[in-house]
Design a binder for these strands. Structure first.
Lengths: 361, 361
DNA sequence: CACTCCTGCTAAAACCATTTAGCAAATGCC
DNA sequence: GGCATTTGCTAAATGGTTTTAGCAGGAGTG
């Protein structure tokens, strides 16, 4: 009797505690309030099509769910259905390049629209961390994997059995055919076209030549295609470069140094820069030499780094459509279209570094 | 009989299929191989302290788990324990400022070290999305919430019952006391000290004054403290600004315009810029006026944007320790220290925009 | 010997949702 | 009226883990 009493009190105390902690509302609570079974509640709330439950039942369940503020327990659902409404975004580097944030932002937005959430994992390109990342994601029953290559170089292929959709973002892999890439080839052609249409048919410098990269030695499909586009459009117009300035890292420093050295030999009238950071360096060297942009020297570049809008005059550049790429990767992941990936156009962003009437298109 | 046969084949086909798909190995599989109960396997693999299982049992279970490549099902574990080894990083903007990637990168690294993964959510500062984000995170049983304020302005307080640890990152909230902030006050003092120690005791311009911000009207603890530090150090040294150039958005454009206008009135010998983008604009105006840095005009700035290293000469700046902040937020989330937050020092990054012998510290 | 206390282990419940199989009543059909 | 079909709903199994409660057998104690 004493024990009974004690238990009862204990129980009461627990009840109070629960009320305080607002213990999560479960489907059973909803069903109880609606006066139906959990089966009915589940079917109604998940919007099953072929159920024969009455309109009255629907109304009661929805009302109960709303009044209790029911939210399904994702873990329980994932356990049962093997789906988690979660996707994993596994990238080599998140912060190193600023590309990352655009890709992530686009992916995040698309995921949110599809009522999914995104797990972000960084591997630094290290195989051990890649494996850990994939397994961590798989453990959590993610519905799909995005492998994002920020540096667009090596293709990572963690050798784990993966039975969910995979999309490669800004990179390719022999193992996973669907990838989202910028249309670097057309971008390359466009860059040359821009210069040519502005009247530049001679005295053009190529800044950022890199033979290994161009040969695709790093399997960087993307960059070698950028070169191919440039070469093809130059050839199609019968143009040649006055010089090709080579370097490995496309950083401002190199852009500055190479341009400066070039200016002491022969002055170009136009520069085609392989990325905005190189162009930034070129700006510095040109300013130092007292040359004005675009009148003395015109520049066209690639990426549409934030930098490009900070320069004076603004840098006309062929943009990498990062947000679109991230978004597309998620959409392709959630709604696979066979094994076809996507190649997204690189829009021309007109600023002041090249003088021309903007053509219609 | 025919049906039987069919079923049997079907079954066999299924088996083959499963073998192909490498259906996940479960704890029961491990227990079976080890010849023990799942209870024993669970206790051993989770490393329970007070269990009385034999050394032999331990060995057998570990061997079985290893040989099968067992990985626990996170959903099942989360359902049972209410812990998911997942944290949610909810921020207003991911891509708008480049700060984001540093914060995320630091947080990601710390999470990985603690064997956690990170859910990234973006709200755009919109209340409806904030609520959605918090609920999505809570639904997934995350172990903690980080609210990151990229813009360091408004403090968001989605009014939802939250019973897990919360850390504010780069922002504050009345509701959640523990926050991780840069030591802007000391940063402000340091910036002035740098100038003074380089001999600049007059003709100093403050670029980026903003009365509202300084008054803390946007509850931006951080920025108003940066101002406070600057003011206090100026006062302590008996210095005053030659002029304070005000603007709202700290973008290069404004830095350029304000500096240019200032140069037509009165030439400063030093400039204290509220961020690197403003300093960038100042560089442009100074270059245009034919002034050299640091000989004609010295600059000190804040943030250590990637930009700062691109400039020539490099920009000396008081760095925001983004990675450290992200890392600290996660550590504080996983190992709460009462209601104490963290204030992280802003390191001085010496480059060439101010001439001085580097002091010891 | 009768008793308690360890030791080494396990059965079964619990977590919460989804889903399969099926039941009872009502309806339709001839 | 007898039969099959439809309607509207539910019991119970399922997913994989953790955890509570407790069992059998051996050792120790008086």
């Amino acid at each position: 009797m004493a024990i009974q009493n004690y238990r009862w009190r204990q129980h009461e105390a627990d009840e109070g505690h629960q009320r305080l902690q607002k213990k999560r509302v479960t489907l059973a609570d909803v069903a109880r309030l609606a006066g139906l079974s959990t089966t009915a509640a589940s079917m109604i709330l998940t919007g099953r099509p072929d159920t024969r439950l009455s309109a009255d039942a629907h109304a009661k369940v929805h009302a109960a769910a709303a009044s209790l503020g029911y939210r399904p327990n994702a873990a329980a659902r994932a356990l049962r259905t093997d789906k988690s409404r979660t996707i994993a975004f596994i990238s080599d580097y998140v912060a190193t390049t600023r590309f990352a944030s655009g890709l992530i932002r686009g992916a995040l937005a698309a995921a949110e629209e599809a009522k999914h959430v995104m797990l972000v994992l960084e591997t630094g390109g290290e195989p051990a961390r890649e494996i850990e990342a994939v397994e961590a994601a798989l453990d959590r029953q993610v519905d799909g994997l995005i492998f994002a290559a920020m540096r667009a170089r090596e293709v990572f292929v963690p050798d784990i059995a993966i039975s969910i959709p995979v999309v490669m973002l800004n990179g390719t892999s022999g193992r996973f055919p669907v990838s989202v890439l910028p249309d670097e080839y057309q971008g390359g052609r466009d860059a040359v076209r821009l210069l040519a249409e502005a009247g530049h048919v001679a005295d053009i410098i190529l800044l950022g030549h890199n033979a290994e990269e161009e040969a695709g030695l790093f399997r960087s499909e993307t960059i070698s295609r950028r070169f191919a586009g440039i070469r093809d459009e130059m050839a199609a117009r019968g143009l040649t470069f006055m010089a090709e300035l080579s370097c490995w890292n496309w950083e401002p420093d190199h852009g500055y140094g190479l341009t400066r050295a070039q200016l002491q030999k022969q002055r170009p009238r136009a520069m085609l820069c392989l990325n905005d950071r190189l162009a930034f360096g070129a700006y510095q060297a040109l300013a130092e030499a007292g040359l004005s942009i675009p009148d003395d020297v015109a520049l066209v570049s690639f990426d549409n780094d934030e930098l490009a809008s900070y320069l004076r005059p603004g840098l006309t550049t062929i943009a990498l459509p990062h947000e679109e790429m991230g978004r597309t990767a998620v959409e392709l992941l959630l709604h696979p279209q066979g094994s076809a990936g996507a190649t997204l156009p690189m829009p021309v962003v007109w600023r002041g570094s090249i003088r021309t009437e903007r053509p219609g298109s």
